[in-house]
Design a protein around this nucleic acid. Structure first.
Length: 267
DNA sequence: AACGAATTCAACCGCCGGACG
DNA sequence: CCGTCCGGCGGTTGAATTCGT
């Protein structure tokens, strides 16, 4: 029995989003919040699949997104997390505020992979390439006991357990004795981040979020945008200038304010 | 300037798992 | 327990852009 498609394929537009579509989606989510994505296209007046709307929102339109290339420390963080988690891009993205899984995945495939190979590190196993080729020879002798296998290879069953007691500890052991220090080296100036990565601390983004919230709320007058144009401009500014780290909690507050404004001041 | 190759990244596809009736 | 719905995920594609000749 075939599943119903996620949306009516007929009449559904594909390809790049236009500014008008973006505005419609932003407008809808600002006024109605993120509800059932399946219903979003209809309610927002878009000829798009619900999935496509969700993707567009999460990967591009969300106001808390950073734009631009990953910084060096972000890159190191991605490398380390990849060593622990494998290709679980969403998990990795969740540790990098303002970054999306798609963005990290793309950056990994286009930049980081090459850098690691240049440094002589296998981007899949995070082992030095020479050691890996040697271990490949030996592993053919005892092939089933593959602790040096790619992190994601043990994940083929789709086990995406958050605390993941399974693969991450093993993955750490795939690094040479120098690697972890090398990888952490550039992160050591960010103690909170480091503690979090080592599992000793809470995520470090809370402080920055509240800090950014304070700053971004200055964009509002009495907690409200003075007009939709202001709001849209604010959203676009957030994207263009990389305003980040204030998370969707803040956004919910904005949204509530707008709803509140709508109630008080009908257009 | 023109062309092809290489690179980038937004968007799509299909699968999976949780929630729910 | 089973079937369905839906959101989310990771892999892949292909148009746009950049680079090299």
């Amino acid at each position: 029995m075939g599943r119903q498609p996620c949306c009516d394929k007929l009449g559904v537009k594909k390809g790049p989003w236009t500014a008008e579509e973006d505005n419609k989606l932003i407008n809808f989510i600002l006024t109605s919040g993120q509800c059932c994505w399946r219903a979003v296209p209809k309610l927002a007046g878009l000829r798009r699949c619900g999935k496509s709307c969700r993707l567009r929102w999460t990967n591009y339109l969300r106001p808390d997104l950073k734009r631009g290339l990953l910084s060096d420390s972000e890159e190191q963080l991605v490398i380390d997390l990849h060593a622990r988690l494998g290709n679980r891009w969403s998990k990795i993205a969740s540790k990098l505020p303002g970054r999306t899984d798609n963005e990290i995945k793309n950056h990994w495939n286009t930049h980081i992979k090459k850098k690691l190979i240049k440094r002589g590190i296998d981007p899949v196993t995070h082992e030095p390439l020479q050691i890996q080729s040697r271990s490949l020879e030996t592993s053919s002798e005892n092939n089933n006991n593959s602790h040096s296998s790619p992190p994601e290879s043990g994940n083929a069953s789709g086990n995406s357990d958050e605390n993941s007691s399974s693969s991450p500890p093993d993955n750490c052991s795939t690094l040479t004795s120098e690697e972890p220090e090398k990888l952490f080296g550039s992160l050591c100036d960010d103690e909170k981040l480091l503690n979090y990565l080592l599992g000793n601390d809470e995520p470090p983004l809370v402080d920055s979020m509240t800090w950014e919230l304070q700053n971004n709320l200055q964009s509002f007058e009495n907690g409200c945008f003075t007009s939709w144009d202001d709001c849209a401009t604010w959203l676009l500014d957030c994207q263009d200038f990389g305003v980040h780290d204030f998370g969707l909690d803040c956004f919910n507050e904005v949204e509530m304010n707008i709803l509140d404004m709508d109630n008080k001041q009908p257009k």
